[in-house]
Design a binder for these strands. Structure first.
Lengths: 336, 336
DNA sequence: TTGACTTTCCAAAACGTTTCGGATGCACTG
DNA sequence: CAGTGCATCCGAAACGTTTTGGAAAGTCAA
């Protein structure tokens, strides 16, 4: 069923070499022959065997990304859209993007080894980056091209693309302060995740800039439940916050639910701001004030960086921090 | 950097054959040799080149699934969790699960061809199945093992796993009827998608069973916006429905938002029921009544079916319809 | 007619693995 | 000592492609 060059060559009365070169459009095969070959290949639905091709070419023509299945960074919708855009751009260069779900860090590292040492991928996208990231260390040691989505502690040494969550949270904090809030709490995601770390830094900087005192902070898993529980806790504290800066929209959605349960209305009694602008964020009650990366084409830019890295470009030329845009809706009013 | 059997054999003073067989645990290599080989392989982090291996073995040891990027079926969180579980089970059999994002049906079909005719995948998972599905037709013609997630019009001929959305919607309709609702509308997803078709059938059957008249129906994209717009429209109709059966939770979330905007409270003025039990469904206001597939291990079952298919089992023995469980929360009260 | 050049094609090697069909040496049997 | 059987190893072919280094035939100028 699966046809190959040999069959094709036999039916055409040509050599394997010529057929191969015809399909690849080399100039040393006659135009008429090339067209004849192409027609035949099309007729039998020939597709080159990818194992044989990448064995010979010594490259997989594939970019891989592992999908750690714990919650975090943005929720999949946004995230997958980014990867879809990335994949489209990569396809133009003849590169496949393949996603590999992994459960747990150990399994993820083993996948990395199979990918890299087994020659399954020519380049890698690292997502859900941590400040100290063993995957980045591994890839640097193996000297395989990669781009991280999110920075690391040693981001100056590798290619990355990231949103400026720090600035976003600084601005959001200052926005709340300018509205009169003085107790602006932060519900943070696990601090080993770089994005969570930076957003917390931004919140801190905003407080300092506005000469506000140290405010409450609560660590949470980046899920609705995490946000719900953190908010319940914050509301029980002696100096209850009037503003809630949530590391992610998922957290914020949980926070909204907790507020309602306590008879508080978001945007009037307590201000809430999230990050990511999830599709459902516009449909919460009240609609969630949030922020998002301003670029419409992160995935495409990510692809460009990968292509550049594969072309040998210096990773230090490939470091993009994208501005973050506030998406004000109804949950960030002045304190009453 | 990338080490291979030849190097390994040279440093060990053995033949490539023996090294290969030692690593694969054949019994015709001495125990002491085998251990020596394994130690050396471990030391240099040897991983077999996957292209060479699958070229020789004539199989890719890979199961593929394309991810169509339009919205639909369940939102990614649930969906990816299922695939992650599937991938874990497949890994136990030495199979990789790879996800390939695709944009548009044409691109998806081209990906299928590269996967199948190019020998990149030994089996395929079809998601977001349609009643008449060109992908299923293609795979059947090529006689490559596959399992669909969701049925097709010709489901009796192939392996599938699916939730019993029809029964779920029938029950939900009868539940609302038993609470006193008489005008139960349905917000449907595009009817070429099997799941949408079946849920609509279930709603219809429920109405018939309760001797309720034909009720309003509105087609929507399976997104929050779709649900929002459909609900706005339904509320403007002369005989406004008191119950809203939404094809998906995303739709239901949009519906909740529209109801609120019209000053109606869900669960009191209008009953709303969704499907999928998204993580955020527990955190809407009021918490969304919905339903979900009762099995905790759909992904794992899916993997088992793939393994069985790869083992040559008849697809007609591999057809699972999983029960759907109602998840009642606060949006399905009696009409006032 | 000869030589140089161009056009068009091809044989064979190589990529790294698995596997078939022995080969070698040794112990044991009769 | 010949014969048998076993334990351990290995050479070589094969998987399907790309690519190197020509070969063959035709064209053209001198």
């Amino acid at each position: 069923m699966m046809s190959n060059l040999k069959q094709l060559a036999q039916t055409l009365g040509l050599s394997i070499t010529t057929v191969s070169r015809a399909l690849d459009g080399y100039s040393d095969v006659a135009v008429v022959t090339r067209e004849r070959v192409r027609a035949a290949a099309h007729a039998i639905n020939y597709r080159p065997n990818s194992a044989a091709r990448s064995l010979r070419r010594r490259k997989a023509e594939t970019v891989a990304v592992t999908l750690p299945m714990e919650p975090g960074r943005f929720g999949p919708p946004v995230f997958l859209n980014m990867l879809a855009a990335c994949s489209q751009r990569l396809a133009e260069e003849g590169l496949d993007l393949m996603l590999l779900p992994t459960a747990g860090r150990a399994a993820e590292m083993e996948t990395y080894r199979r990918l890299v040492d087994g020659g399954r991928a020519d380049a890698i996208i690292v997502v859900r980056t941590r400040l100290e990231d063993e995957r980045v260390a591994f890839l640097k040691e193996r000297a395989i091209p990669f781009v991280t989505h999110g920075r690391t502690a040693r981001a100056h040494e590798h290619a990355f693309i990231d949103g400026d969550g720090e600035a976003g949270f600084r601005e959001a904090t200052r926005l709340l302060a300018s509205l009169g809030h003085r107790r602006i709490a932060h519900i943070s995601a696990p601090q080993d995740l770089t994005f969570a770390h930076l957003r917390r830094i931004g919140w801190h900087a905003g407080l300092a800039h506005e000469n506000l005192p140290e405010a409450l902070e609560c660590a949470a898993r980046p899920t609705e439940i995490g946000g719900y529980e953190a908010t319940r806790w914050l509301l029980q504290q002696p100096s209850r916050p009037t503003g809630l800066l949530c590391a992610t929209d998922s957290i914020a959605i949980g926070a909204l639910s907790a507020l309602k349960e306590c008879g508080l209305v978001a945007g009037r009694d307590v201000a809430v701001i999230g990050h990511d602008n999830l599709p459902s964020a516009a449909f919460t009650d009240p609609p969630l004030s949030t922020m998002e990366i301003a670029a419409p084409d992160v995935g495409c830019q990510l692809a460009e960086m990968l292509i550049a890295r594969l072309g040998g470009r210096d990773p230090r030329d490939l470091q993009t921090i994208l501005p973050v845009r506030q998406v004000p809706r109804a949950t960030h009013g002045r304190p009453n």
